[in-house]
Each structure stands twice: as C-alpha cells, then as structure tokens.
Design a protein around this nucleic acid. Structure first.
Length: 415
DNA sequence: CAACGACCTCG
DNA sequence: GAGGTCGTT
C-alpha cells in the first residue's frame, strides 16, 4: 500500500489550502452541514468537515471571515506540478471531465499574473471556488434574509441570535432525492449510515484518507439495476430498497437521465407533483428535493416535527383539529410559513428546524431564558393567521392534486 | 378528506 | 417509536 494520505488540517499550514471571503454570519459550517439537509459530511477534525461534492472529496473549515477549502486530487483536465507532488493520496478510478470550452474560457478570463502563479493553478482555483459558491449558494445574502425574517417574526429573531449562518445547500438532485427516500420512518443517525452504505456499495470510489475511502453518490443507472433491491435489503434498507430501485428505474424509463436536473427550471408545484409520481416519494420527500436541490426556496417540507413547531411556537391553527399529517395540513402549514417569511420560507424553516434538533440543544441553552414578547403575535403573524382563515373558505374551489395513478404499478408487483 | 395499519430495521 | 408513504376504509 502506498503512503496513507491524511485529511488536510489548516493549522498544519495554509499552503495546501485556498480560501474565499465568507463571514460566519453568512455561513456556519457546523450547523449547515449538520442539520440533516445532507448526510454526506463528517467532522473529521476540530471544525474541519470532509465530504463529497461535485464528484470530488473536500475538506472545509472556516475562520471569522473566510471559508477555507482543500479539494483532493487534480482537477479534471487541469494537471499542475503541485498536484503531482501532492499525489500522496490514493486516486480511485477516473474523475469526471470538465467541459473543454469551459476550461478555455476560464483560462482567458483568469488574471494569473496578478497572483504571480501559473495559469493552471489559477484556473484550478477558480473552478473550485465556483463549485463552492454554487453549492453553498453564496450569492444569496443570508444576513439580509435573517434581517427580514426577524422583522416579520419575533420568534425567529429570538432563535436567530444563536443559530446564525444556516443556509440551504444546492445539492445534486439525484443525491438529494434518493437520500431523502431513505428518511421515511427513520432517524437521522441511521440515515447517515444508510446513505454511506449506498455510496460504498454502488458508488465510484474517489479518494482515500486516513483509511477511509470516500465514494461518489451512485448514478441513476447503478440504482436502477434489477439486483439493487435485494442488495439493499441485505444492507438493512428494509422496504425502502424497492423504492430506491423502482424510482431510479422509473425515471430512466419514463423520462431520461437529465429529467431531475431539468426540474430546476420547472415551477415549484409542478415539479413537486412530478416527483410524487415516483414510488417512496410523498409530499414531504418531494418538498425536500425541491428545496434542497431544485432551486425552490419557497418549498417548506412539513414533517411531524415542523408541525409541532407550528403549533407550539406559532399557535398555528392549521391542522390542529386533525390527528394525522394529511395533505391538506401539509399545504396549510406550508402556506402559513410562506405567508409569514416570504419567498425564501424554506430557508427560514431550516433555521427553526435546526434549532430544535437534540444535538444542538447545548447552543440553545445560551438563549436568554425568556422574552416577554414571545407569546404575543407580531402583526405579520396575525396577518398570516387571518389569511389562513380566509383561505379556509376560498380553498374549497382549488382542485385537489391527484398523482396516484402512476403509483399503481408498484403495488401490482407486490406479490 | 381523514384515519389507520402495514412496511423494515434498529446510532 | 423514528424527520414517511401507500393502499384501504
């Protein structure tokens, strides 16, 4: 075996790292990567997070005003001397190719002379920076959004004092959808292991660090294979094994490999209903995929937990009469939060969701014990409630969305 | 539209 | 029971 490569550590020297300007108010790695929107990152060192993104292995960490990153291995098509020297790591298989014209465009635009470095290094750095900006959606001013949400919602403002920098990732649609199919009737700790097993057994190996091999998320073609259900059942996926294989197969047969990606430019409700035609994808999972990978910032995934938050912290009447989380309750709670928080309601919801996770309760104890205002409704909250009451009568005319017909196939196979 | 049982497994 | 979905009543 070759020399064992180790996870990069910033304190060991910044030479192997690059960084971009990013205040903690714009991004908190620990909360953003640990709040359950992705299951692919682990804290591999103090404040250092390692995971797979865009077909590469990364370690990330941050200081007060910068986000530091190290991407392992050569960037596709851009080989530098540095990469060759740094080749202690074990590359596994081939890496995905970057569009050649894109490389050329970057080479032209980069001002390498200013940095006094080879053009190839600058090109590599810029490509990596672009990937991070896209993945973390750093063009979105989170601080500004927090200000707006706090203005409309005193409870949010209260929570936001501690839970800063929680932003929505822009994940790969396949990874996001199939990860969330695994979440049904399941805890977060187990889901992590399942997604890891999914990647290890069906994904392409990318890189090895400290004895851990990192794998890419499997492509649809691998998930759709007929042997996948029994394979995953053996790995403890339970009834979700069939959902995963059948959904992948159905996407490829009925739509094609680029279909999920294409839903990014489809309107929210239309994209959500399209996803719901897949086995194992109900309204909650579809909303997660919409919010976290398909650019639908107003999608609000409502689970039992969010339902509790709506009732407990907002005295939201929607669905309080029902005992179960029906489609109508989903819609009403989602509409309530959209009315309150606006077009990025899904982002705001993730902040409150994160603040309620058991693993982050230590942080919450730092909140001042009580504010007088907490039990009073702000004007915007009142408006949201009034609006809900009005829609109570108006909504009856809305046509129910029926997406059941396509799912019949699966039941028929169920022996 | 609402409620209910079943579905797999076990961080 | 768990961050849900599906088929039936």
């Amino acid at each position: 075996m070759a020399t064992m490569a180790k996870h990069a550590v910033l304190s060991a020297g910044a030479a192997a790292w690059a960084s971009l300007a990013c205040a903690r108010s714009q991004l908190r790695l620990d909360l953003t990567l640990g709040c359950g929107q992705t299951f692919r990152w682990r804290e591999t060192g103090d404040g250092h997070w390692t995971g797979v993104m865009g077909g590469r292995v990364w370690t990330l960490t941050q200081t007060d005003d910068r986000l530091w990153y190290h991407a392992y291995g050569a960037h596709p098509d851009v080989h530098t001397e540095e990469d060759n020297r740094e080749g202690k790591g074990k590359a596994c298989g081939s890496v995905q190719q970057l569009n050649k014209s894109e490389i050329k465009r970057r080479k032209v635009n980069v001002k390498a002379e200013e940095r006094d470095e080879p053009v190839t290094v600058a090109v590599k750095r810029e490509a990596e920076e672009d990937m991070l900006v896209d993945y973390f959606q750093l063009h979105v001013d989170l601080e500004g959004l927090y200000r707006e949400w706090s203005l409309a919602d005193p409870h949010f403002k209260h929570i936001a004092n501690i839970f800063t920098g929680i932003r929505m990732l822009r994940q790969d649609p396949t990874e996001c959808l199939f990860s969330f199919i695994c979440t049904s009737n399941n805890h977060i700790s187990r889901i992590q292991g399942m997604v890891e097993n999914l990647c290890r057994s069906l994904g392409r190996p990318l890189w090895e660090l400290d004895g851990t091999t990192y794998y890419d998320f499997p492509p649809l073609s691998a998930l759709a294979d007929g042997k996948v259900e029994s394979l995953l059942r053996d790995l403890g996926f339970g009834y979700r094994a069939r959902f995963l294989q059948q959904s992948a197969k159905q996407i490829l047969e009925n739509h094609g490999p680029d279909w999920l990606q294409g839903l990014r430019s489809t309107p929210y409700l239309q994209a959500r209903d399209a996803l719901r035609s897949l086995p194992g994808v109900g309204i909650k999972v579809a909303d997660c995929a919409c919010l976290m990978s398909l650019d639908k910032a107003d999608a609000v995934p409502v689970d039992t937990h969010v339902w509790q938050i709506a009732k407990r912290d907002y005295k939201c009447a929607a669905g309080s009469a029902q005992k179960t989380l029906t489609d109508k309750v989903h819609r009403d709670i989602g509409d309530f939060f959209r009315q309150l928080w606006g077009p990025y309601a899904g982002w705001a919801q993730s902040v409150l969701f994160c603040a309620d996770l058991k693993k982050f309760q230590k942080l919450k104890e730092m909140l001042s014990v009580k504010l007088e205002d907490d039990n009073k409704d702000s004007l915007p909250i009142k408006k949201a409630k009034i609006k809900m009451e009005k829609q109570e009568t108006v909504n009856k005319t809305e046509k129910p969305r029926s997406v059941r017909h396509k799912k019949a196939k699966l039941a028929a196979q169920k022996k």
